[in-house]
């Protein structure tokens, strides 16, 4: 963990947008990040884009993780636009879950920082999120 993180723990929002409610993945990721010393804001599923933007702003999170099993990730480009419009364009967004390759390209083009597929290891997720936040902190410093 970097010196910056020791001074101030990483603060991450883990959530689900859209219609699906499967939360095994989001609960697991939230637990892993907490174990790694991060502060996790966790919401239930079914969040609207407006609700995610509001939570991200109110809680002042440094990264947003969207968990998707049943194609709800297709809303993420709209989320990216809404974040930018709310002045939160600098907050990195990662997506994890079942994301077909064609859709991944679309998410990347919309500015999504990373897409995590099933089978990814804990260390890779934790390190990837920490690096994304470190980078965002450097940019904003």
């Amino acid at each position: 963990m970097s010196a910056a993180a020791k001074a101030r723990p990483y603060k991450v929002l883990i959530t689900k947008v859209g219609l699906d409610g499967h939360d095994r993945g989001s609960r697991l990721i939230a637990a892993w990040l907490r174990d790694a010393g991060m502060e996790v804001v966790y919401t239930g599923p079914w969040q609207s884009i407006g609700a995610v933007v509001a939570t991200a702003r109110d809680e002042d999170v440094e990264l947003i993780g969207i968990s998707s099993l049943a194609t709800d990730h297709r809303l993420v480009p709209k989320l990216m636009a809404a974040l930018a419009a709310a002045g939160l364009g600098q907050v990195p967004v990662v997506v994890g879950g079942i994301v077909p390759e064609d859709d991944e390209a679309e998410l990347r083009a919309a500015g999504v920082h990373a897409v995590y597929h099933p089978g990814i290891g804990r260390d890779e997720v934790v390190a990837g999120i920490a690096a994304a936040i470190d980078n965002a902190r450097l940019v904003s410093a």
């Binding site: 219609l19 699906d20 079914w46 194609t71 709800d72 297709r74 709209k78």
Partner: peptide, 21 residues
């Protein structure tokens, strides 16, 4: 589809989510 599961009609949800699951 998930729209139906949530108790909504097709004209009540974001079009990106229709017909995918």
């Amino acid at each position: 589809c998930n729209t139906f599961m949530r108790g909504l009609d097709a004209d009540q949800v974001e079009p990106e989510l229709l017909g995918t699951c």
